[in-house]
Write a protein that binds this DNA or RNA. Structure first.
Lengths: 192, 192
DNA sequence: ACCCGCATGTAAGTCGTTACATGATTCT
DNA sequence: AGAATCATGTAACGACTTACATGCGGGT
């Protein structure tokens, strides 16, 4: 069983979805630390069905093309449950920006500062988006969030991971940009 | 040019190394956010040499097998410099533990708490190792660290990234373990 | 007529891991 | 004699990306 398989089961455990719906949720989506394209999802769904972890039923639609809606089976739910509490295999971290930092001593200070400042901004923006979602969650799901047995709690947990990640990354970028370049441009030349 | 190619050039810009030496430095090593096995490194070195980014010379050794020592060329250094200040393509984050958290609402609270507590410990241990290295760096490289034009500074920068990463990850694991399980076992049953 | 969103697939290629393969030298 | 480290490669496989391919229905 692949990790992608469990990612799909994790979504189907919450609600039945078509391959297309799954693809939408896997598009680098908020709070969900995995991603996949439709070209990977459709074959994986076939494999999951072959293993008896999901079943599908065709839903006919008038105004749109028909779709196959996938549902998790008891066997699939069992497999998913078993996977959750198994310690994950540790995979080496690969981060291209940090790799660039490893060679930053060779670069022009100003240019390097610009890159790390820009990347820092991206993470700050993502952080802001996450904080907004968090505010909405804490507002709308007051009970769910405090109940570890609810999917809302789990969503909140992954979101928290995202917030901590972005906060730390942004902090590091800002520090490094400052250290290599120093001077922040007084007013931009109009570019991004 | 692949990212691995730049990772190798980044190491060779600091010192000339053999494929074997490169492999040692790529074994999930401290402060260096990339990794590769020898089976990937040797072919990549051949490719880099074909592109004129590195050259090698055979060094004969009496007490050990001979080795090919690779050196970065002017062209290789130029390519590396150009790469550093290019914004990296954003790649989707894939984190299996966070994915597990997304389905944690289905799991037994105690078992889940154990997993996240254990993972948290691993990150705390890695953090401790990083902090130790940092202390030594700050002690031994006092000048290098404050000079953005020195490789020591760059090493320190990647190490800082590692520290922030581990700190954030450990914090999240502790929070989640607490939230799902609560009670910490008074005394272990002897296991890890 | 053309583009966009919905909907589902296959094929080719890249990157990385695991396994296969060989050989020298040193230590026990 | 056998294990461990140094040293360099190739082959098979799996995961993921990009591109190819098709078709319906609605809006401009």
């Amino acid at each position: 069983m692949t990790t992608l398989g469990y990612a799909i089961l994790g979504l189907l455990a919450r609600e039945s979805l078509s391959g297309y719906d799954l693809t939408q949720r896997m598009k680098g989506r908020v709070g969900f630390f995995w991603s996949a394209r439709h070209s990977q999802i459709y074959p994986e769904l076939a494999r999951l069905e072959g293993d008896g972890f999901v079943t599908h039923s065709v839903v006919e639609q008038r105004d749109r093309p028909d779709k196959k809606v996938y549902e998790i089976t008891a066997s699939g739910l069992q497999a998913l449950k078993g996977w959750i509490t198994q310690p994950p295999p540790e995979k080496p971290t690969r981060d291209e920006l940090t790799l660039k930092a490893y060679s930053v001593w060779l670069a022009d200070g100003g240019e390097a500062a610009r890159v790390f400042r820009e990347e820092g901004l991206k993470h700050e923006e993502q952080l802001a988006r996450y904080e907004e979602i968090r505010a909405r969650m804490e507002d709308e799901w007051r009970e769910g969030i405090s109940d570890p047995g609810s999917p809302q709690f789990a969503s909140y947990a992954t979101l928290r991971r995202g917030i901590i990640h972005e906060r730390g990354y942004a902090e590091w970028c800002r520090w490094l940009a400052e250290a290599v370049g120093g001077e922040v441009p007084i007013s931009g030349r109009g570019g991004a």
